[in-house]
Structures are given as C-alpha cells and as structure tokens.
Design a protein around this nucleic acid. Sequence first.
DNA 1: TTGTATGCGTTATCAG
DNA 2: CTGATAACGCATACAA
Lengths: 330, 330
Amino acid sequence: MSNKRLTVRQIAEIANVSIATVSRVSRGTGQVSPETRERVLRVIEEHGYRPNQLGRALAEQKHGAVAIVFPGLAGPYFSELIQGFEYEAMETGASVHIVGTHRRAAADDDVLAMSARVDGIAVHGGTIKEETLRRLAADVPVVVLAGRPLDGIPAVRADNSRVAELTRHLLVDHGYRRLAFVGNPDGSPDVTDRWEAFRQGHRDARVPAPKTPVKIGLQQSDGVIAAGELFERANPPRAIVCANDETALGVLIGALGRGLKIPGDVAITGFDDVAMSSLVQPGLTTIRQPIRELGAVTARLLLSGLGEPGAVMDTVLATELVLRGSCGCR
Amino acid sequence: MSNKRLTVRQIAEIANVSIATVSRVSRGTGQVSPETRERVLRVIEEHGYRPNQLGRALAEQKHGAVAIVFPGLAGPYFSELIQGFEYEAMETGASVHIVGTHRRAAADDDVLAMSARVDGIAVHGGTIKEETLRRLAADVPVVVLAGRPLDGIPAVRADNSRVAELTRHLLVDHGYRRLAFVGNPDGSPDVTDRWEAFRQGHRDARVPAPKTPVKIGLQQSDGVIAAGELFERANPPRAIVCANDETALGVLIGALGRGLKIPGDVAITGFDDVAMSSLVQPGLTTIRQPIRELGAVTARLLLSGLGEPGAVMDTVLATELVLRGSCGCR
DNA sequence: TTGTATGCGTTATCAG
DNA sequence: CTGATAACGCATACAA
C-alpha cells in the first residue's frame, strides 16, 4: 500500500534527460524533439509517473481546487447544484471541496480556513455572515450563489420574482383567498425574495396578504410539520405557496395523510421543479429554475478570474411557471 | 481583493529573528524564550500572518485533506453520512473533498486523480469498480464505506441482515404473503445484502421468496415509479420491502395518491429511519442504522493511519428494527 | 532543442 | 535558545 511514487528527478535520470525536459513532456508545454518526447513518455508510462500535486501547486502558486459552501446537503436541489458546479470545475481540471455548514457554530471559521486551500469559493446565500463573506473575499475570489451581490462580490441566482406571477394565478385565475406562505425568509436570500414576490402578487391582485410566513426549514420533513400546523388551524388556508418543492411535497404528503383532497380542499405550489414534482398525484404546480445551470455558471465565473474592471456582478437566470394539478389547473 | 499574504521570511525580518524561530512560534513546537515568542507572536498577529498551506503541505509531505466518494448526493442518507464524516475530519484539522460520481463515465479516473490530492479516501460501496479500488489503494489509504472489505482494504458498514428479521415479522407475525422487494442489488453492496436477507427471511419462515426484486434506484422518485409498476400488476403485492426509506416513502406516496390504504391494502417498510419516516401517516416501519456514526467511524479509521498489522478490517454497526404503522403494527 | 539554476513557503536537522 | 541550511517536487526563465 502507498508505494512511494517517483519524482521528476528519477524519471529524468532514467530517461537520460534533464528534469526540465521531463516537466515539458509531462505537461505538454514547450518544444521537445519527437524522439526525446517518445523516450521520456515511455519511461513515464512504464513507471506510472504522475507529477506530485504538492510540488506542482507550490511552483504554480495555485491549488487547482475550488470550494462550494452550502447550508446543508439534503435534498435534490443541492445535489443538482453540486453536479452542475462539479462538472464544470472538473472540465478545467480543478477539484472541488464541498463544505456543509450544517448550522454549526464554527462554520464561519471553517469557511475562512478553507480560503487557504483553494483558488476560489462559491458561497450559497444564507450560509455565513456578511462580515465573514467580506473577509473571505479579501483572501480569495468569491462568488455568491443564490444570493445578492455584496460590495465587490458577484452573484449568480435565479429569478424569484416569478412567484408573484404564481401568486396572482392563484388569486385571480383560480379565485382563491386565504393563501399561506411556507418558508423562513430569515437567513435565506432566495426565500426572502420569494416571500416578497408572494406579497407583491397580492398587491398586484389587490388582495391583502398574510402578515407572516410559516417559518420553517426547506426540507420535506419541515413541510410535513408545516402541514400539521396549517391544517389544525380553525380557518385553514385555501392555497399554500411553499418556498421550494421539498416543503411543498411535505405539505402534500401531510394533506394526503389527513385525507384532504388536492386541489379540492387545498391547493399547493412549490419552487424548483424537482423530479418528484411531476410524479406525485396530483402533479405539483411549481416554478422551474435551472438548478444545474446555476451551479455551472457559478463555477465558470469563479474559474474565469474575477475582479477585472467591467466584470459581471450579477447574473440572474430565467425561471418558468409550470402548471400542474396541485393548483387546480386541469 | 486577494491581498498577497506575508511569508515566514518577511515575518522573520520584521521580528528580527530567523525563519526557523517564526516557524517554531507559529506552530508552537520546540523551545523559544518567552520574550522572543512574545515579540514574534505580536508581529504575526499584527500582520495577520498564516502559514501558506502549499508550502506546509510540501514540507510535511501531506495534504491535510481526505476525500469521500459517493454515487450521488441526493437524499438525507448521504447528507447525514457526510455530516458524520466531515465533523470527525474537521476535528483533526483535515478538510474534506466530496466526490459525487453521478454515474459519470469518467468517474473512476476522477477518483484515481483524487488520490494525488488527499491523504486518504473513503469510498462508498458501489461507486467504482473493484479493479479501480485496488489501484487506488496502492496509492493512498482507502476505507470502504457501506461495502465489504476487499483484499487489504478495510470496510465500515451497518448490519443489513436485520432485514431477515423484518421479513419474518411480515410473514409470520402479520401473516402476509406475496411480498415484493424494491431495490437494485446490482452495484450496491447494501442493497445486495438486504435482498439476500429478504430471501433469508423467507427461508426462515419456510415461505417461497420472489425470484427477482423490482430493480430501481434509491431515490424517492424511484419509489413512485416502482409503485406505478407494482400497483398495476394483476396480483399486486400484499407487502413491499424497500431497500431504503426514500424509495419506501416514494412507494407510500404512490399508494396514497392511488387512494390505497396503508397497511390495509398494502404494507410498506424501509431501511434507514430518516426524519420523514416518523412523520408520514402512517409512520414507516423501518430499520434504523446509525448513519452519522457510520460516517464518523469511517473518518476516524481513515485518519488513524491504516495498514498496520492487526488493524481492524471490518466494522459492522448494529441496526434496530423500528415498528410503526405501515407494516400493520398498532 | 536541451540543460542549469532558481524560486515557491514551509518544516526540520544540525551546529552554534 | 537560536540561526543557517537543506530538503520537499515541480515549473520556468535564462543559457547554452
């Protein structure tokens, strides 16, 4: 186990060339005569030589790695996001550190420490304090993912304002009253935007909006818990707008478990359009955001060398309203 | 942005000492006189000096990082597993690379490339070929997570055999016949073990077992799809044993959506005991495995320097049968 | 086209 | 207790 690998020097000696030539051959840069290249290549192949990442990193003054920071990893949203990010990063040969803060106390310090190990960091909105974000950006290139630009830090996000359109659809097209919003705006820029759009939709339709959202997390289990609260009310809501599909599915499961009819007794909508949303009965009305693309764009931005004047500071990706059965359509 | 950090040399110059002394002070090793230490410490503090990770890594000949390789990141199972692993790794100051293979073609190569960047790799069962695993283990310490030991490679896993007990419970205590197993044994050691235990349970109860499982993935959406297939059969199963909770929840949602009664029309069981399982109506009967602990034990093993003679080759963590409403209990 | 020599930032050894 | 100095493995400007 753990055989000692050979170094440039040893390969150079065996192939009877200088270490410079070995380096040139192994990384394909500079001019090398065909015969020499052939010979060196054979030795490299034969001994399974691969340049030591540590030495290379030090010489090149770069880690060849980037990091992406999340609140947690649960659910298909993060999975998709990471896939998009990871794939794009791999393309350029960079490896990816994934940091889940899991609302740990030391999370901010961990992220700061991470800055010493990577060439850039993507930070998901709502994971670390703004102050920490600023300090981080002083050490290393940073992109905010699913949040707003801050000072010189660029952001990549989806168009959450479409929730206003969805809300208007429920109020006007279906004529529902007594809507509820499920999701906690505190600490999540996405949820904040969606809650605001929910209220905007009410204003557009000239219907008074609820004063407070049902503050709860973004996982499916949170949705079940929210359902428990909402359906026990004396005057339960006619329609429930959830901050994401996961909670919407949780609410839907809670409703189904109570024998409620959807959308007959209650309409439910989400945000994301994850795989489950088109599979449940009835299908979940939601807003599709290009999650994978979000991750990919973030990675590209991070790896394209930020900070030049005239750089893109805010990238907002389009979203799309997807009408299925759970809102009352069809 | 990206201010250039100071080096040992500059700190040494400012503090009027040698770089050796700065190193000693900054890492707290060796003997330094109180006055000198004080002075150097002040300079370090003042200039916010932190040793460059690249230089340190090269000098110490270690990366200070470990990796954990997964098939995908979807679902609470992986989230929990990673949390357990990450927390334990952070304790020792190591950072964590998370690699999702996402059934990519180049996954094996990516994992191999990863070996040049870390001090150890935990590989989840069913992610890469055995051959790749062996080559990997030649380069770097490896632990198999949720799989079986291979050659010299140790494994950490949960006791899947308890599925036999669960199966027996359904067959004997509840007297169900026509059970189905949902999950694809190919490529997942855990599912293989559970499928085998399912058959063992039938043998124990002297009931003929189904010849084939419903081969499908481990996500909730796969469960919904499985439900579609199972409930369309001319002779649908009386009880469904799922390879994990996610698929079980998917099946349950599919059943609920069709208006089926659980457990009246069909009993459903899972494996894992994720948060959702105690929240759905009826509660999901399942087998609890200590997911977080699984991750933690793996990290500890990986960081404790493997490979000595007499090392632990196989760690099997206990699981527990959790009876709720979905199997017919209560 | 090829080789020599230097730098990258630390840690660690060995004299003093 | 402190300081020179040698690794660590690679990339690259500069010479030949």
